[in-house]
Design a protein around this nucleic acid. Structure first.
Length: 466
DNA sequence: CGACGGGACGC
DNA sequence: CGACGGGACGC
């Protein structure tokens, strides 16, 4: 035995790599080794014996090199007989020696992992990443309840402890996968969109980008409101996952005055839904944009809503503020009136007048076609530093723009500043993005695009995506 | 001018 | 019911 083996057999390292066995007193270390050797590297077997009589107390510990080995052995060997005429054994993950507890470790504590993920991840993205380790019972993303924005954290529940252990051991380090602490109590998920919608529309949420439709003038001073060049009655709704026309129309028809709602076929062959919605008045469109841009529908899927230049209803920059204030006050009255039942009216069967294809990105730059984002477990090969003037573009718009050179990994905006970072898994797309986008204007926001300096060194932080 | 995030689940 | 030993790195 070399030094590392000896050292690790003294500690409960890695966590959950040691088994606690309850056996007949006749079961010896040799018998245990025979039956458990195939599950992995056994670092130690200890049969607990009476100090005086040297007789086994029917309790043993088996230390494996890895938690996944211990978990697999537990799953396979629990209830088996190791010798003729002996009782079936019980196998548990041993409590760590420092814990002092002798309570059985439940599967509940071993099958759910906690991960850090890109904010753009949906539940399906999460499942895709982790399904290679085993059957996933569910995957959920932690989101801001009001804005629907992902917090970049998620849970994945597997069916078996060995699957969770393998995921933790083998998944990309950037996920920072660890076992999740058990929930304090039983939680029941609330996936009522309308509940969320109502809270979205009534709450004052200082932490979100939602527009506060209050009476005071401070509500329209945020810069982001003005990042778009134009305000029109016509909106482009973009969804990262497939949605039906009926879903989007039902949602946007909650706001009065809808002219029509038409699903656009994505010209790039992606299944990102693009839906054009037009209202018969600017106020409704302003309200819909402010309230539904970033709204999570279905849960995990943030909708993007931008104005489309339909050739009419252009307003001067000077007029925007007044327009939005008027719209805000008008819509505030509308929304303070109806009851929940009235809000829940559904709409179907929209006739769709011909509308020319538009995108949510307004720019004179000739952008390449949309490309897929690469998975977060890729290695960052190049990173861009982007400065926005006067205010940052939304992350979804930035993804739309910066993905078009290929191998985009993540967009990160520095909170409270007009700068952000764009991570690519290849150098070439990053350099092409600089060449095409530096100094250009997107949705009225001028960007400086350059290579980022290397991040600050933090010796204790390792294996970040950057 | 303009620089580096982030770990917990509606009872 | 069924929970914690033995032995000792190497500047």
């Amino acid at each position: 035995m070399d030094e590392s083996n000896r050292a690790s057999s003294y500690l409960d390292e890695p966590p959950n790599s040691r088994l606690f066995l309850v056996t007949s007193k006749s079961i010896t270390e040799e018998i245990i080794r025979e039956h458990f050797a195939d599950f992995g590297e056994i670092q130690d077997i200890w049969v607990v014996k009476d100090k005086q009589t040297k007789e086994s107390k029917g309790v043993s510990f088996v230390k494996f090199a890895k938690s996944s080995q211990a978990c697999t052995a537990m799953e396979e060997m629990h209830g088996k007989c190791l010798a003729e005429g002996t009782k079936p054994i019980k196998v548990f993950i041993a409590q760590s020696r420092s814990s002092g507890s002798h309570r059985d470790v439940e599967d509940e504590e071993l099958t759910r992992i906690f991960v850090m993920i890109p904010k753009s991840f949906t539940e399906d993205d999460l499942k895709e990443k982790f399904k290679v380790y085993g059957n996933i019972e569910y995957a959920i993303i932690i989101r801001n309840k009001t804005t629907g924005e992902s917090k970049g954290l998620g849970y994945v529940r597997f069916h078996k402890a060995s699957q969770a252990a393998k995921a933790i051991e083998n998944c990309d380090k950037t996920f920072r996968a660890i076992l999740a602490e058990p929930r304090t109590k039983n939680a029941s998920a609330d996936n009522d969109y309308f509940t969320n919608l109502r809270s979205e529309h009534s709450g004052n949420d200082p932490g979100s980008n939602s527009y506060t439709f209050a009476h005071e003038s401070s509500s329209y001073t945020a810069g982001e409101t003005w990042s778009s060049d134009i305000i029109t009655r016509c909106l482009m709704v973009s969804s990262r996952v497939a949605v039906t026309q009926e879903q989007i129309c039902g949602l946007f028809d909650l706001i009065p005055g809808m002219d029509f709602c038409e699903m656009q076929r994505d010209q790039y062959g992606f299944s990102k839904g693009h839906v054009v919605v037009r209202y018969n008045n600017l106020g409704s469109a302003v309200y819909a944009k402010e309230k539904l841009n970033g709204f999570e529908y279905p849960p995990g899927n943030r909708l993007s809503v931008t104005y489309i230049d339909d050739g009419e209803d252009r307003t001067s920059p000077v007029g925007k503020m007044a327009m939005q204030l008027v719209a805000a006050q008008m819509m505030s009255m509308v929304w303070n009136g109806p009851t929940g039942a009235q809000l829940m009216k559904t709409s179907t069967g929209y006739t769709a007048p011909p509308t020319h294809q538009k995108t949510r990105v307004q720019t004179d730059v000739a952008l390449p076609s949309l490309k897929k984002l690469v998975s977060s477990d890729s290695v960052v090969k190049e990173r861009l530093f982007v400065i926005f003037n006067p205010s940052p573009l939304p992350v979804d718009v930035l993804e739309d723009v910066f993905c078009r050179f290929g191998s985009l990994m993540e967009v990160y905006l520095v909170p409270g500043r007009n700068v952000g970072y764009i991570k690519y898994a290849d150098r070439k797309p990053a350099h092409e993005a600089i060449a095409l986008l530096h100094g250009k204007v997107i949705n009225g926001v001028k960007m400086k695009v350059m290579l980022a300096d290397p991040p600050k060194e933090e010796s204790h932080k390792r294996q970040r995506t950057y």
